[in-house]
């Protein structure tokens, strides 16, 4: 079972996060301060930390920085109230692996944690094959079974991203950040429209849908064989 330590000074928020994550099958514990968190880390091993940026006494940034200085590489997801550019950059510089702006959907939090726990396979092989889909990363061509897929560069990028995260939930915010390098929220449903195009090319009539919606959270790519 995945063990998560929630470092958050607000008891109500911590309680709700534990409830929500518990219901999704995570083993969680709560630390109300950096000091308490250090004690919990010394006691047992954690798969990932969820750290509020603003903590009483030592703040989240300082806590993670000292953690990294000690050589601890446990994945850290920052929770932040600001969500400004500087805020994000500071968080990543301090050693955070990802960040989430409050308030957030639990589904988004879970997707981010899963992405942290299962880093994508970034092999150097020129061919990426999952199920019936085959990507030639050098020629930039894609096939599904015997069928050549005529993908635009952006669509190719999207498909590669999903294939490297097979079985993982990918949220629109993750796609905006990783595919488009946009760290801001869009008002339009750019991601849905682009994914719609890709899916229409990917799934011919009667074929299994490779990228499916995860209601209210995002999308997931699953191999068809």
């Amino acid at each position: 079972m995945t063990r998560l330590l929630i470092v958050e000074d607000d008891a109500a928020t911590a309680h709700e996060l534990r409830e929500g994550l518990g219901a999704r099958g995570y083993d969680t514990a709560h630390a109300g301060s950096a000091e308490a968190a250090r004690a919990s880390i010394a006691e047992s091993a954690w798969d990932a930390l969820i750290v509020d940026r603003m903590l009483p006494a030592q703040d989240g940034l300082g806590f993670v920085r000292t953690l990294r200085e000690r050589g601890d590489t446990v994945p850290v997801l920052f929770l932040t109230a600001l969500g400004t550019v500087d805020d994000r950059i500071e968080g990543l510089r301090a050693g955070g692996d990802d960040y989430l702006v409050k308030p957030f959907a639990l589904g988004e939090l879970v997707a981010r944690i899963e992405a942290l726990l299962r880093r994508p396979a970034m092999g150097m092989r020129p061919l990426l094959r999952i199920g019936s889909v085959e990507l030639d990363l050098i020629a930039r061509t894609a096939r599904r079974g015997e069928r050549d897929l005529e993908l635009l560069p952006r669509e190719f990028q999207l498909l590669e991203y999903f294939m490297r995260r097979e079985g993982l939930v990918v949220t629109p915010a993750m796609l905006l950040r990783d595919i488009w390098n946009y760290n801001f929220e869009l008002r339009s449903n750019l991601v849905d429209v682009q994914l719609g195009r890709l899916r229409r090319k990917l799934d011919a009539l009667g074929e299994t849908r490779l990228i499916t919606n995860v209601r209210g959270v995002g999308f997931v790519f699953r191999a068809d064989t």
Binding site: D10, T13, E16, E19, L82, V101, K102, P103, A105
Partner: peptide, 24 residues
């Protein structure tokens, strides 16, 4: 400003999680 944002948004996080629990 950071403190205000933090104090306003943290309870919203709890509220949102509660509502999600209700929904699910």
């Amino acid at each position: 400003g950071e403190n205000v944002a933090h104090d306003l948004r943290t309870p919203l996080t709890a509220l949102r999680a509660q509502l999600e629990r209700l929904r699910d």
